[in-house]
């Protein structure tokens, strides 16, 4: 799967947030996206998935050559895209088991029979792998989960849905070292198959577990520089000040 983002511009209300994002990614590759808070990383994730709060004002998002910007969010998901949210919402009254059974059914519609027994067995295995207690099957999705539990639940969903490409939006934030290792293990398991990921993060530590092929830095709604792992080391050492100094633009002041 090839994802090609070209000159993507988006605003919320009257405020432009993405100001021309260019990024090409393929399944089989791991990309890291870094950048200071507020630079537009979550917005990019949301816009790629078609969140209704954002208005796209320019550019294209091509998946295997097809522009997905006119598609509804669920149609985009059904292409095999997945988003692990920075702040997963709580879905009251819907159990993890019921939610995932239906999501898996939708994902593999017509492809493979989702048998009751097979599904539960797969789910139990994936939960063991993610070190999530089996009792969570009967809990309402994300309701009352701790921050770390929510993040693990996102990765559990990814394992069950087997997307070809995932955006992980700060899945590592707020995790302790052990939880981080579990999350990374989930992502690396996906890499056994044809799978690509865009990992949005502030920290080097997750990238020690999941080696990125490419690293991009976003600032003020653009990808301002790209490279390999050396950029991460640079950031750890110097912070974002050099990015601001080198790529920052004065806000245009309107009367």
């Amino acid at each position: 799967m090839e994802i090609k983002i070209e000159g993507l511009e988006a605003k919320i209300g009257d405020t432009p947030i993405l100001r021309g994002v260019d990024l090409t990614m393929n399944s089989g590759e791991v990309h890291a996206l870094m950048g200071p808070n507020g630079s537009g990383k979550s917005t990019l994730s949301n816009v790629v998935f078609g969140h209704p709060s954002y208005e796209v004002t320019g550019g294209r998002v091509l998946v295997d050559g097809e522009d997905i910007l006119e598609m509804e969010p669920h149609e985009r998901a059904r292409l095999g895209l997945f988003l692990a949210f920075q702040y997963p919402v709580e879905i009251s009254g819907v159990t993890v088991g019921r939610f995932l059974r239906r999501a898996v059914e939708i994902r593999f519609e017509g492809q493979k029979e989702v048998r009751t027994k097979g599904f539960l067995k797969d789910l139990r295995e994936a939960m063991d792998f993610m070190e999530i207690d089996q009792q969570f099957i009967n809990r309402y999705l994300n309701e009352g989960f701790s921050g770390g539990e929510k993040k693990r639940m996102e990765i559990l969903q990814m394992l069950m849905l087997q997307p070809q490409f995932s955006i992980l939006d700060e899945t590592d934030s707020g995790l302790d070292i052990d939880a981080l290792a579990v999350v990374a293990r989930g992502v690396n398991k996906m890499r056994e198959h044809d799978f690509g990921a865009l990992i949005i993060t502030h920290y080097q530590r997750i990238l020690d577990h999941i080696k990125p092929d490419f690293v991009h830095i976003m600032y003020q709604g653009r990808i301002v520089t790209s490279g390999g792992g050396e950029i991460v080391t640079e950031l750890e050492k110097r912070g974002y000040d050099w990015v601001r100094a080198q790529y920052g633009q004065e806000e245009e002041v309107h009367e």
Binding site: F49, P73, R78, V89, I91
Partner: peptide, 26 residues
């Protein structure tokens, strides 16, 4: 919440219905 479910492949109609059932479910 609808968007979250849509990102998992649920159509908006199904997502809304699930959320409505979920509202009463407890």
């Amino acid at each position: 919440e609808v968007f979250y479910l849509a990102s998992r492949g649920f159509s908006p109609e199904e997502a809304e219905e699930i959320l409505l059932q979920g509202f009463f479910e407890p």
